[in-house]
Computed example of a mutant assay.
Amino acid sequence: MTTLTEPAQARGQTIERGLLGRVADRAGSGLVQVLLILVAVFWLVPTLGLLVVSLRGESVNNATGWWTVFTKPAEITFENYGSLLASGFTSSFWNTVLITVPATLLVIGIAAMAAYAFAWIDFRGRDAVFLVVVALLVVPIQIGLIPIAKMYGFLGIFGSIAGVVLFHVAYGLPFAIFLLRNFFVGIPRELLEAARMDGAEEWRIFATVVFPLAKPAIASLGIFQFLWVWNDLLIALVFADTENQPMTKALQSQMRQFGTNMDILAPGAFLSLIIPLVLFFAFQRFFVQGLLAGSVK
């Protein structure tokens, strides 16, 4: 007599695989890999099209499609990028860097320390505070626009880069703390206990044991935060003035009522796209490791 928990294979029975199971079994075949490569190339076609459009004149773009450049390579020119730089886009690019880099580093640093405290330091009300942090994940950004705008006006930082950075940090911390805390709790307790027995304090354990082990999760968080801030438009429209506007707001201001202004929009959009793309491919190994971290015990 067999029990209900005994595997079917142990009882000599065969399990019929469904359609999805057979597809998963064949996912490593050469044909599937070729199909995945074709899908990846297909998704990169818009990026290639944007690059070609940014290298063609506005009159040529209005007359023919971007794919004609393969038969007429003489259409390629760098005049659009010259016009872009002449329009003051360089300052918007550096404003984006000044907003994105501090907002990303501050979120990583603050969230890592808070996540370590929630994971490995016993203090009164720890679980209640963590539940509040998790509850903040569902708070939409739009709710805080008016109150924070009034507070920024009172503090005198409305329209400044510092105000935009602080807003991104405040709304990026709940997800960051939640992500890193779930990773930290998977670290073996024996490592921390051994460090404490050697006389290491909590900040030293965090800096020398926990933080190095959390590089995959931190890299994943850094990519997420960087992309969110770099591509943000709503916060820039509300809290950044003309002098401190990032690229997204600068590109939005180039939209015309009866024209596309493609000679400015195309190269600007490609420059705003290429930086996150390079960052993602540079850290994709850590990104995948961070997503899979904690999935297997």
Rank of each mutant, 00 (worst) to 15 (best):
Met1Leu: 11
Thr2Asp: 12
Thr2Ala: 11
Gly21Ser: 10
Val23Asn: 00
Val39Gly: 11
Trp43Val: 07
Val45Arg: 01
Pro46Met: 07
Leu50Tyr: 03
Leu50His: 04
Arg56Ser: 14
Arg56Gln: 09
Asn62Tyr: 05
Trp66Pro: 10
Phe70Val: 11
Thr71Cys: 11
Thr77Leu: 08
Thr77Tyr: 13
Asn80Ala: 08
Tyr81Leu: 10
Ser83Gly: 13
Leu84Tyr: 02
Leu85Ser: 14
Ser87Pro: 06
Gly88Asn: 12
Thr90Trp: 15
Ser91Val: 07
Leu98Met: 06
Leu98His: 09
Thr104His: 07
Ile110Met: 11
Ile110Glu: 01
Ala119Gln: 03
Phe123Val: 03
Phe123Gln: 02
Arg124Gln: 10
Arg126Gly: 02
Asp127Phe: 14
Asp127Asn: 09
Phe130Ser: 03
Val132Ala: 12
Val133Met: 09
Val139Leu: 10
Ile143Gly: 13
Gly144Ser: 15
Gly144Cys: 15
Leu145Trp: 07
Leu145Pro: 11
Ala149Cys: 06
Met151Asp: 07
Tyr152Glu: 05
Gly153Asp: 15
Gly156Phe: 09
Ile157Trp: 02
Ser160Cys: 08
Ser160Asp: 04
Gly163Asn: 01
Gly163Trp: 02
Val169Met: 05
Ala170Gly: 05
Ala176Glu: 00
Arg181Val: 07
Phe184Cys: 05
Gly186Phe: 05
Gly186Pro: 00
Arg189Asp: 12
Glu190Ile: 14
Asp198Arg: 06
Ala200Asp: 08
Glu202Cys: 04
Arg204Pro: 12
Arg204Met: 07
Arg204Asn: 13
Ile205Tyr: 01
Pro212Leu: 01
Ala214Lys: 00
Lys215Trp: 14
Ile223Gln: 00
Leu227Glu: 08
Asp232Tyr: 01
Pro246Lys: 01
Leu251Cys: 00
Arg256Tyr: 09
Gly259Trp: 05
Thr260His: 05
Pro267Phe: 03
Gly268Tyr: 03
Phe270Pro: 02
Ile275Cys: 06
Leu279Gln: 04
Phe280Ile: 15
Phe286Trp: 14
Phe286Lys: 02
Ala293Phe: 13
Val296Trp: 08
